[in-house]
Design a protein around this nucleic acid. Structure first.
Lengths: 255, 255
DNA sequence: CCAAAAGTGTTACCCTTACACCCATGG
DNA sequence: CCATGGGTGTAAGGGTAACACTTTTGG
């Protein structure tokens, strides 16, 4: 009786579980995400992969991130788990199906794609210039897309990016952001543009500087950025200790 | 080659996936959670269950909630997915193991508990008096516990409650709370106590009333609560339309 | 020399917070 | 009659937001 109960449950509940990562970078005054193009198709998706049954979800995300970017020890945050039954809606286009089957075999879709797979969404903040974008087994191109130029993606990945962005915006209002997105040294206007880009909102330079400096996480350096047009701006860098403390205790960014 | 690839992946990744629900109620000026006691033991856990492979996660949560409380159409919010490899740490107590095996059979733990199962955490806000607490197949008692009296629970369920509470506190600062936790008509001091309980903080009566009324989601009724000690307080109720709008647009509760 | 961007302080106003007296009800 | 809790408005202060002129640099 109990045996039977357990067996029945297992049959109905064994399934695959995956991770998808929204990897944010910041370059040329724009927020970017890293996307993959599926082999021999023009279908794009987020980097992701299966979670092994003896592996923690966080580890899986870290692993996938390392594989796609070459980076470890980066900011990674779980934001939502996607468990709808119609997550594959964008695999219904005939042309795409044909191309995928030509590449992966005719039962590819049936075995790997044509069913609901629950996916845990993570977003990562990385330093744009450090990333070695690397495709995976299913894809042959991996590159950055401006957040406003992202095309219609496979699965529900457009919705994932939307939600990740929302989570990032939530995050930036309660904790400092920038350590992983900017190079070690940066100028105040660069930091301001990052905030303005994420929140899609303009700030007053003086008020922004006052507020950010009040968190006591920034160190103003003697150096200035040279070789750029116009007046040379001062360089700043994060005081890692104080930055971590501010991450733990939270700050209130309200502008 | 591709066949083999797919087969290998499936073997390593097929697993079970579950839901756990932190069901919050409000009674006698205290926040409560609904817990289950496992059959013939004194081990308590959150209500939960497996997600079937063709079922959406939200549906699974709704189903579990209906089964344990008799309620549908209640506030249900996914807050975190728990995917660590050591989630079963509290199943190591010898006495508990013995009792569980006596009830469920000697291979119960090996088959159902002695492995990592990823669980999606939801929290629900329900009206205390409406709940018909009902145990499930594994348990023989289902009852409310004051949030500050929760005992050490099975799995990582104490951590889940912590996180759910944190998510609820986050939520109350950005969206109105109360519609599902309070009876249809309630007094301003009752609403204030709810907020004070959730945020574990005292507010000034006049300021609280001013702020809540400024959201324009409350309707002050002619009626007063009678039969209670002291001066009869006015009754209020939520304007459902405006409440929904405030949920969608967000409010800023900062006190 | 000029255009473009960066450095820098002060003021007004609004919003948040603090605060007290009277009233109604049950016991 | 009294204790307890509820109803109600105002004033001060702090923090947010608005605002302009000068300086530097590359072209």
């Amino acid at each position: 009786m109990i045996e039977h109960h357990l067996k029945t449950i297992l049959e109905k509940t064994l399934q695959e579980l995956s991770i998808d990562c929204v990897i944010f970078g910041f370059h040329a005054g724009e927020l970017k995400v890293l996307l993959l193009r599926w082999k021999a198709t023009d279908g794009w998706s987020l980097p992701g992969g299966r979670i092994y049954k003896d592996e923690s979800a966080d580890n899986a995300a870290t692993r996938i991130l390392l594989e796609r970017t070459g980076l470890s020890e980066i900011f990674l945050h779980q934001f939502h788990t996607f468990g709808d039954t119609n997550r594959n809606k964008y695999f219904t286009e005939a042309e795409l199906v044909q191309k995928l089957e030509a590449t992966f075999g005719s039962n590819f879709l049936a075995q790997l794609v044509d069913k609901r797979v629950v996916s845990i969404g993570y977003f990562a903040l990385v330093e744009f210039d450090q990333v070695q974008a690397t495709p995976d087994w299913y894809t042959d191109e991996c590159r950055w897309w401006g957040i406003s130029e992202v095309p219609p993606l496979l699965f529900d990945h457009n919705e994932m990016i939307e939600r990740a962005l929302k989570a990032l915006r939530q995050q930036i209002r309660n904790q400092p952001v920038g350590y992983n997105l900017l190079p070690e040294k940066f100028t105040m206007p660069e930091l301001q543009r990052l905030y303005e880009t994420i929140l899609d909102k303009q700030f007053d330079r003086r008020n922004f500087q006052k507020l950010l400096m009040s968190y006591d996480i920034l160190e103003k350096l003697e150096e200035k950025r040279i070789g750029v047009a116009n007046k040379s701006p001062f360089l700043y860098r994060f005081d890692k200790q104080k930055y971590e403390a501010a991450m733990a205790n939270g700050v209130s960014f309200s502008m």
